[in-house]
Design a protein around this nucleic acid. Structure first.
Lengths: 238, 238
DNA sequence: CGATCGTTTGACAAGGGTCAAAATGCGTGG
DNA sequence: CCACGCATTTTGACCCTTGTCAAACGATCG
C-alpha cells in the first residue's frame, strides 16, 4: 500500500531495465531525456488522429489512452499508455497517427532517449524493441478479448493485464492498484455499455475474486482469478 | 476482371513501391530475396504462438492469417496477411510471437530483403516503416470494429478494408476480388458465429451493396457502401 | 454415388443494450 | 460546516441483437 517516494524516472527505469539490461550509458541517456520533461494536464490530446507524428515520446508518469472515433458517435479505447511505455512508437517520417492519444490524469512525458545508433545491441535499443513487441501483443489480446470473450471475462482479463503492466513499471502492489478510469471509460475499452460494466463489476465483487471501487482495484486471489478466465500473461522473453 | 499474368514478385513490387519510391538497388535486393522463395501448402503454420521467431519474411503470393486461441476452444483471427505484406515484423531477437500465423491458401514467401543498413532513408527501409505503421493501423481498426460496430457494420467495414489492401497489392479490380475464407473463418475474424455471418451476408446481398459468394466479393457501389458504414481508408502518408 | 465440408434456414434462448430514475460522491461557494 | 450542482454509480424493466441447436440443402471429390 505504501509506495516509496519515486524519483521522476522511477517507473521508466524499472520498466526498461526489466525489458533489457541497461548500461550506464543507457541510463545516462535516460536521465538526460527525463531532464527535458514536460507536464501535461488531464484530458489533453498528446497525438491526434490524422495528425503528423512529431516524434516518439516516453511516458514518465500518469495515465494516457488511445482512442478511435466512430462516426456514429461511439468511441473505442484502443488501449492504455502506462508509465515507462512509449507514445507514437510506430511513428515514422510521414506516418500519420491512426489513433488519438489523450492524457487521462496529469501526465509527465519526455522525448524518448535515443540509443547509440552505432550499437544495435545496446540495452536501450533492445528495450524499445521489446516494448514495441509488447505493444503489439497488447493490441492482439485486445482483439481476442473483444472478439471472443463474454462481458465478465473481458473485464477480468483486462484487469489482470493492467495489473501486470503496472507491476512491470513497479507501480502496483502484488494485489492492488489504482485505476483512474470511470466505468464509462472502462466500457469504451471493453466494447460494452457503462450500465453493463457496472453489472459486471457488481458480479465480480460478489464472486469475491476482485473488488473494484473508488478508482482502486483489489485482486483477492490472483491465481484463482487467472484460472477463471484462462489468463496467461504476455511473455516478454523466450 | 482479367488479371495480367504476374511475375512472381508482382504484388510485392506493386505494394512496396506504393509505400515508398524504390531505387534500382532496392529492386535488386527484392529480386535476390524473391529468388530464394519457398512454397508452403495451405493450412500450415508459418509462425507458432509462443515459438521463437526466426526472422522477418515477405509474403509473395497467397493468403495467410494470424490467430490467437482462447482456452475455452474459441479462436480469434487477429488479421490477414496479404501479398506484399510482412510476416513477423515485430520480431526481434528473443521476442516471442503472440499469434500463430497460418497459411490459408498455398503461399509463397521469402526472407524479407534487408535494406542498406547504412542508409536510413532507403526506399526499402521507408517501405518497411510504412508497412509496420499500416499493420498497426489494421490492428487498431480491428479493435474498433469488434468493440463498437454491429454485426453488419463489421462485415461491411472489413470487406472494404480487405478490398483496399488487395488494391494496394494490385490484386483486386476496382469492384471485385477473391475471398478464400469460409463463413466460419469470417466469423472468427469478426467475433461472431458463422450462422450470424451467414445472415449478415444475406442481408448485404439483399441490400444490393455488396455480393458475397463462391469465394468472391463484388462491391456494387463502393462509394455508397463506404457511406453506410462511415468507412474511411487507412491513410498511408500525410 | 456416398461422404464430407460448407451454406442456408428456422425456432428459440440469452447476453447485453436502452431508457429512465434514484442514489451516491465530490468539489465549490456561501 | 452546510448546501448546491454536477458527474458518476447503481438499479429496474424491457427490448433487440446475436448465439444456440438442429436440420436441410448444396457442392465437391474420391
Amino acid at each position: 500500500m505504501i509506495m516509496p517516494a519515486q524519483q521522476p524516472d522511477g517507473s521508466v527505469l524499472t520498466r526498461l531495465t526489466a525489458l533489457a539490461p541497461l548500461t550506464a550509458d543507457d541510463k545516462g541517456r535516460i536521465n538526460d531525456a527525463v531532464a527535458a520533461r514536460t507536464v501535461v494536464p488531464p484530458r489533453r490530446d498528446l497525438v491526434s488522429e490524422g495528425e503528423r507524428i512529431t516524434g516518439v515520446r516516453l511516458l514518465i508518469d500518469g495515465w494516457a489512452f488511445r482512442t478511435q472515433m466512430v462516426q456514429n458517435g461511439y468511441r473505442q479505447i484502443i488501449g492504455l499508455v502506462l508509465p515507462g511505455e512509449l507514445i507514437g512508437m510506430c511513428a515514422r517520417r510521414n506516418a500519420v497517427g491512426v489513433t488519438t492519444t489523450t492524457t487521462l490524469t496529469e501526465v509527465v512525458t519526455c522525448p524518448a532517449p535515443m540509443p547509440d545508433s552505432t550499437d544495435e545491441h545496446s540495452g536501450l535499443f533492445q528495450a524499445y524493441a521489446m516494448s514495441a513487441a509488447l505493444e503489439e501483443a497488447y493490441l492482439c489480446r485486445q482483439i481476442t478479448r473483444l472478439g471472443r470473450m463474454s462481458a465478465s471475462e473481458r473485464l477480468t482479463d483486462w484487469l489482470l493485464e493492467v495489473h501486470d503492466r503496472l507491476l512491470l513499471a513497479g507501480i502496483a502492489s502484488h494485489d492492488e492498484f489504482e485505476l483512474p478510469l470511470t466505468q464509462e471509460m472502462i466500457a469504451d475499452v471493453l466494447g460494452l455499455t457503462s450500465v453493463h460494466v457496472n453489472r459486471m463489476i457488481k458480479l465480480l465483487r460478489k464472486s469475491g475474486l476482485v473488488t473494484l471501487g473508488a478508482k482502486r482495484v483489489k485482486i483477492q486471489d490472483r491465481k484463482l482469478t487467472e484460472r477463471v478466465v484462462c489468463y496467461s500473461p504476455v511473455k516478454v522473453v523466450a
